[in-house]
């Protein structure tokens, strides 16, 4: 078993390095289990208060339970919450009907870009993990994005012994990935150990549950009877179904995820 304590120690170290190295960091929160666990790690790293803004990218297509969860926890944890939306595209009615790649790029990536620009954030903390997707397995803990917001995945920095590259000249910002080394199972065991709040959509109802949360039109359920955190942990120990199997944008075509991420998608 991976020791949760080791995972946590490493994540806290990374968060503190990011806070020391960057002038204007922010953390991205989807309201899902990974980014909620990451906010909790921030609270641990900084002794109770998250010392930078929390960004939620609102496509307007999120499940209503996600909005409710967001509003409650933001208040309870005293977050400085920024809700980022691409208002222009929303007005024009951009949606999944325009193609998943186009919709994600417009409502997520573009909304994020404008938010970063407006607030001049130089580091963005994200809760991606290596075991989620082959493309995310290739990431660094500190991952620079160039002036066009692009991920130059063919020339990533040397990153050894917790010496993360933090220079940001000619870069829009650096992505910081404090839970890159965690697995889905570790996150749930941590949720259990730390008694963290999670969206009830993760628990099975009528034999179905959400394993990964996204926008309502592009996210589907898996067959499951796991009604508690303990049952989810047990399910994950034996499952062979991919975590993001219910996320349509990953699967539209081969390498869609790579293309989305190269453009600045999370």
């Amino acid at each position: 078993m991976l020791e949760l304590k080791d995972l946590e120690n490493r994540s806290i170290y990374i968060l503190r390095e990011a806070y020391a190295e960057f002038k204007r960091p922010a953390v991205l929160w989807s309201t899902g289990k990974d980014s909620t666990a990451t906010l909790w790690l921030c609270k641990k790293a900084f002794f109770g208060k998250i010392p930078f803004p929390v960004i939620h990218i609102d496509t307007t297509y999120k499940f209503k339970q996600m909005y409710a969860f967001r509003n409650n926890l933001a208040k309870e944890w005293g977050m400085n919450l920024i809700v980022a939306r691409n208002e222009e595209a929303i007005k024009e009615g951009v949606g999944p009907k325009d193609g998943k790649f186009e919709c994600c790029t417009s409502l997520k990536t573009q909304a994020l870009m404008s938010c970063l620009e407006e607030n001049r954030f130089d580091a963005l903390i994200l809760a991606i993990r290596r075991d989620e997707h082959g493309i995310r397995a290739k990431e660094r803990y500190f991952s620079p994005r160039d002036e066009d917001f692009k991920w130059n995945y063919k020339d990533q920095p040397l990153e050894m012994w917790d010496q993360y590259q933090s220079t940001t000249e000619d870069k829009t910002h650096t992505r910081v990935h404090p839970i890159l080394h965690w697995r889905e199972l570790d996150v749930w065991e941590y949720v259990k150990q730390e008694n963290l709040p999670v969206n009830p959509m993760y628990f099975a109802k009528d034999g179905k549950r959400y394993r990964s949360l996204g926008c309502e039109p592009c996210t589907s359920t898996i067959d499951s009877d796991a009604k508690t955190i303990e049952e989810i942990v047990e399910e994950l120990k034996v499952t062979k179904i991919a975590e993001r199997s219910g996320r349509a944008q990953d699967k539209e075509k081969a390498f869609t995820m790579q293309k989305l991420r190269a453009l600045g998608y999370m």
């Binding site: 082959g134 397995a137 290739k138 995945y153 063919k154 390498f255």
Partner: peptide
């Protein structure tokens, strides 16, 4: 191909960057 997930890696049939799996 379980490891090489960049399209360039598949096209060029070589690993470009490191991958972590468990």
């Amino acid at each position: 191909y379980f490891l090489d997930s960049f399209d360039d890696e598949l096209k060029e049939e070589r690993t470009i960057d490191t991958t972590g799996v468990m």
